[in-house]
Design a binder for these strands. Structure first.
Lengths: 98, 98
DNA sequence: CTGCTAATTAGCAATTATGCTAATCTCTGG
DNA sequence: CCAGAGATTAGCATAATTGCTAATTAGCAG
């Protein structure tokens, strides 16, 4: 649901994870290494993001590759813009405001 | 801080408050009346939004008028779009909104 | 000052989030 | 099978959030 997305975005470490993934898919351990927090802690943050469907996981043999789920992030941004009462300007969103 | 903004957005009641305020400024009691939760509870949600500077409060005699702080909400939306790696081009935001 | 309405703050219980260490799982390679 | 790396899950303690009722503040009218 939408709510889990915003709750997932509420933690700075998770937003930073998304920022890292923005540049391309990365392995779990690779991501965890960028943070001060312990590996299990980062693993949990990744799980929260996955639960909100903000990221997807794919096993690559021994390791796990994460990537951003762009459309869900887009939906969240669109929801915020909707709160502004302004049109998004996104290609596939047409408003019916008169 | 940016973080308090996303934390404030994490609760559905607070996003709904913003949605109500999107259409124009409203009195605290007027807003509280729209929710099932008790008035003090809504008052606290308003305080969280104010703390994040997503809204501003203005006394009108006996009552308090709240309004959305558009720029902070814009910043949050922009931050999300930034996570998408796409350019939002809102330097000006003078796009003809409808 | 008293009383009244609008709204916030205090205090409390219950739930949820965070972050650690230890234990477990999954896969690869001998 | 066993050993090891990569990663998650379990369990626990602490902190933060949520939402209530009761108490309090702020302003207005008499």
């Amino acid at each position: 649901m939408e709510n889990s997305v915003f709750k997932a975005l509420a933690h700075p470490a998770r937003r930073q994870l998304l920022a890292l993934l923005r540049k391309g898919p990365r392995l779990a351990g690779d991501l965890a290494a960028e943070f001060e927090a312990s590996w299990p802690t980062m693993s949990r943050h990744l799980a929260v993001l996955k639960e909100a469907e903000l990221i997807t996981a794919e096993r690559q043999g021994n390791q796990i590759l994460y990537r951003v789920n762009t459309s869900v992030l887009e939906d969240a941004a669109t929801a915020l813009l909707g709160l502004l009462g302004r049109d998004n300007g996104d290609d596939d969103l047409k408003e019916a405001a008169e």
